[in-house]
Design a protein around this nucleic acid. Structure first.
Lengths: 341, 341
DNA sequence: GTGAAAGCGCTAACAA
DNA sequence: TTGTTAGCGCTTTCAC
């Protein structure tokens, strides 16, 4: 009766072993899936464990087995609806895969450096980066043998594990859709210059406009955030030749464009101007916006990212891979016939 | 020259000690803030550590020191803009405090139970719960001596650490504001019945309506989510006596109400109906909504939560505390003069 | 199938 | 101030 450890103090595998009258290693085996152990032994141990409320100490386990079963997620803490969607999708899936999430919200370059150190110190098994990562930082992780999967970003000419959204055909559809509505004068709202996502999207847009005909009458740059769209919209619309359709590099800014046009400039969307975005975030589907956009299959991308990192953790020699998931064109009510001249 | 450990294999404090020609414990001390160590020794160790790219293994440190420096955050993964705001605020602050975040996104009751086990196994130093937690689950954490801070929820008659938003005076202002606009027929859109936040908000609303005069002509219930507002709005407006102002238990639903009224029912807001919400989430301030609402000081609440859990971690005997931060009334453009009969 | 024993990498007495 | 030593709680050979 007195073999119970102090109330309040946590039971260890030794306590369980003593109570069950077996060796400590037997207890360990009992909690290791697929270990060879007789039913009788298992029952004894489980009973003792239950009585003592025993659960293995994951920290000790990590130390000896060199596997923390923790995965780090790096994600921008910028207020932007895209990141939370990605984060929650990833997190939900990691827990289903028996992995814990170590969260690092990133506000600036220093945060990344710090996160990378913590990842190293805490022996995270892998990293998903949905935040800016420099080549040096990526290489540092590689040198430390920590598998990395980049979410929606990659480096040129560098083997990386990447989940990317291929929007080429969707962009084509989008421009063709605008063209069908009679649009030929486009305004472009780019993302930040350093953003590969923005570069790629804008490249595809230009290419599609070339193909389908039309011209870009004005351009401006935002920082992906809602607020940045207000000034950018003014800039786009102040041009001598006004665009009849505005293409923003992400939904967040497209929502800002729409709001500026409707609620500040007194324009009507899509009667006066059509607006399109990229991402397919949830908010873009709200009745006040109903954006026409190119949707990323965020759920499937998260699924793929988790799968990819799990594979690399289990088999570190697995070669790098880029997975391109196809984005889809989604027609909302933010686009309509171009206003007759 | 050959005392360097295998390239690729991580350096330990022993490797550093060997290279620096000192004892392993000296290395340990060097990385422990405030340990007594001579400058000369520190320089030697730091140089060796740098050469080997040494950083202490946090897992081993946690095992021996019984402090993981990890804090668990439980948060609903429901698609609702409120939670991500809270999560990012908390996470940013935890990293500033030298604590790592172990994230648990919660989809249902089972997820909570699972998270609680993981928290125990991973020896999280503390827990912030911004998700539903049963009394039993809370008590289990208490029995395991893990400090818990509840974010925006608490139990009656049970000592808990809680961060709560006091909206009483703001609600009064809100109702008085509506009254000034000539509103006297209110529609209430409650949150789920089990939600204390909703109960409290609705209680204060009723109380304020009693005080200022007016009647509740119709009521319905939603689940806090945007989508649930559509049907609820129809229900509210189908009543014989129609409300001129609708009060929703959170902004997310208020946005849904506004969209249903404007974009589906063809009403004008606030000309036909006024709409108010609770929370003060970022999206509620977008030009398409500009909700009149009661704002929670989310940043300060997060700050308080972090402070509270840090205190409890450092001094476990600290008594429980409830902190009530005051919400503020924010006037948007979703409210205006009541339509003359 | 089971037990004994050797660590994983670190911190924290305790001596010197 | 520094080094020696004993674990933290577990996994994993290795005998039996």
């Amino acid at each position: 009766m007195s073999s119970k450890p102090e109330i309040n103090s946590r039971a260890t595998s030794y306590d369980v072993a003593r109570l069950a009258g077996v060796s400590q290693s037997a207890v360990s085996r009992c909690f290791k899936p697929g270990a060879s152990i007789s039913k009788k032994m298992r029952d004894k141990v489980v009973a003792a464990a239950e009585e003592l409320n025993y659960q293995p100490n994951a920290i000790a386990r990590s130390l000896i087995s060199q596997r923390s079963h923790m995965v780090a997620i790096l994600i921008s803490s910028q207020i932007n609806f895209y990141y939370p969607e990605v984060l929650f999708q990833l997190s939900d899936r990691f827990s289903k895969n028996g992995l814990r999430v170590l969260l690092f919200t990133i506000n600036g370059e220093e945060d990344v450096a710090d996160a990378i150190d913590q990842i190293w110190q805490y022996q995270a098994d892998g990293v998903i980066s949905a935040s800016a990562l420099s080549i040096e930082q990526h290489q540092l992780l590689q040198r430390r043998q920590i598998p990395v999967v980049m979410f929606n970003r990659y480096f040129y000419n560098l083997p990386t594990n990447t989940i990317w959204c291929d929007t080429e055909s969707a962009v084509n559809e989008m421009i063709s859709h605008l063209k069908d509505f009679g649009h030929s004068k486009f305004g472009l709202l780019r993302g930040p210059d350093y953003s590969m996502v923005s570069q790629e999207r804008m490249r595809l847009v230009r290419q599609a406009i070339d193909t389908h005909g039309g011209q870009i009458v004005s351009e401006s740059e935002g920082n992906y955030r809602y607020e940045s769209a207000a000034a950018a919209t003014q800039e786009l619309m102040q041009h001598r030749v006004k665009p009849t359709a505005i293409i923003a590099a992400n939904d967040m800014m497209a929502m800002g464009v729409l709001d500026e046009l409707k609620n500040v400039m007194g324009k009507s969307v899509p009667a006066d101007v059509s607006v399109v975005g990229f991402d397919g975030i949830w908010a873009a589907s709200f009745a006040s916006y109903e954006l026409t956009t190119v949707r990323q299959p965020i759920g499937r991308m998260a699924e793929a990212a988790v799968e990819m990192i799990v594979d690399r953790i289990e088999k570190p020699t697995t070669s790098t891979e880029k997975r391109y998931l196809t984005g889809t064109f989604v027609q909302g009510t933010s686009t309509g016939p171009a206003k007759a001249k």
